[in-house]
Amino acid sequence: MNQDKIIEILMATYNGEKYISEQIDSIINQTCKNWKLLIRDDGSQDKTLEILEEYEKRDERINILRDIKGNLGFVKNFEELLKNSSEEFIMFSDQDDYWIENKLENYINELGTLSEKEQKMPLLIHSNSFVCDENLNVKKKEFINSKIAAHYKKNSYFFSYIVQGSTVLINKELMDIGLPFLKNVTLHDRYFHLLAEFFGKRIFISKSLIKYRQHGGNEIGAKGSIIKKILKKRYFEQSDRELILEIKEKYKGKIEKEKIKLINKYLEVTDRNQNRMMRFIKSFKFKMSIKKRIFILFKG
């Protein structure tokens, strides 16, 4: 990879005055300096925008996306940022995390191992993260299961949420497939994860490169995450099924036949109108935890 290429970081903010400075400072203090930060505030009622404007004045790499579209919500805010991005490689940032100082360096090094052809195929790179309290004290050394995330060629991704949005880098080719967002997108990270699995390449860096802050104001967090909800309720999330079905319908003819066959098998396993025992048997086509597989029999 050309080391002169700029990484564009997209940050969606909303009422983030308490932690936003720490996050932006952690980006400014990266060992890699070749980045730019595009921020869209979603109508904050606190001092978030004032803080952002101060950073914008101090660092020419930081820019605020200004529009009159008002409060769009978390997902649509990121979609708007993507529509206004301009670089080949794009990263997502939450407003309340903290980036380890060599995060960007690790990603650029990973890109450097890829051929030009690989860099041009739809691409997603992600890493792990430390789970921290509100003061950034580490509570867990990993947010996601590294063993599952590292298996690129396995199909566990249908039933495992292994991509955390604030650790994601995508390229323009993957972004172009994903825009505009489909109507069933409820998490932008899950959406791009699925697109990368269906159309291109996903790479996992088995290191924790951000401090993922847990606090009362988190919109999505480890305590109330979709992962926990899946384990608590049943073996899949209905909104996830609807998204996969929508991707299949929109892109049929563009997704490889083998991937379509796999999607169809997933849709059969998650069709609650079908016999539980048959779905349990079909579930062995997929990498899935024993707990989730048992849920098919006992919770449907």
Rank of each mutant, 00 (worst) to 15 (best):
S225E: 05
L231R: 01
E249T: 11
I247V: 14
G253Y: 13
A196K: 04
L243I: 05
R213Y: 11
K229D: 05
E219C: 11
I210Y: 06
S225N: 07
E246K: 06
S239E: 14
L195R: 00
Y212E: 13
Y191P: 02
E242G: 08
K223D: 10
F236I: 06
G253W: 11
R213G: 09
K232A: 12
R190I: 00
E242R: 05
F192T: 00
V185W: 00
K229V: 02
F198T: 10
F204G: 00
T186G: 00
R213L: 10
Q238F: 14
I205Q: 03
I230M: 11
L195Y: 02
L194S: 06
F236C: 08
K254N: 11
I205W: 12
F236R: 08
I247K: 02
I220D: 09
S225P: 11
R190S: 01
K252Q: 09
R202K: 15
Y251N: 01
S208E: 03
K223G: 10
L187R: 04
H215M: 12
I255Q: 15
F192L: 00
I203T: 03
K248C: 11
A222P: 09
K252G: 02
F236H: 14
E246P: 11
K229E: 12
S208M: 09
K201T: 12
Q214P: 05
A222F: 06
F236S: 11
I220Y: 15
E237R: 09
R202G: 02
Y191L: 01
I227W: 00
I230L: 12
T186S: 00
L194M: 13
D240C: 11
K228S: 02
N218P: 09
S206M: 12
K207H: 04
K254S: 14
G216V: 10
N218V: 14
K233D: 08
A196F: 05
E246T: 12
Q214Y: 06
K232R: 12
N218M: 10
A196E: 06
V185F: 00
K207L: 09
K211D: 15
L231C: 00
L187S: 05
K211P: 13
I205G: 04
K223N: 10
Y212M: 15
V185I: 01
F204S: 04
E249Y: 06
I210A: 07
R190K: 04
F192H: 00
G221R: 14
F236D: 12
R241G: 02
L187K: 03
D189E: 03
I244H: 11
Y191D: 01
I203F: 05
K232C: 13
N218E: 09
A196Q: 01
I230T: 08
I244W: 15
D189T: 03
H193A: 07
K232V: 14
R202Q: 10
I203Q: 03
G253M: 10
I205K: 05
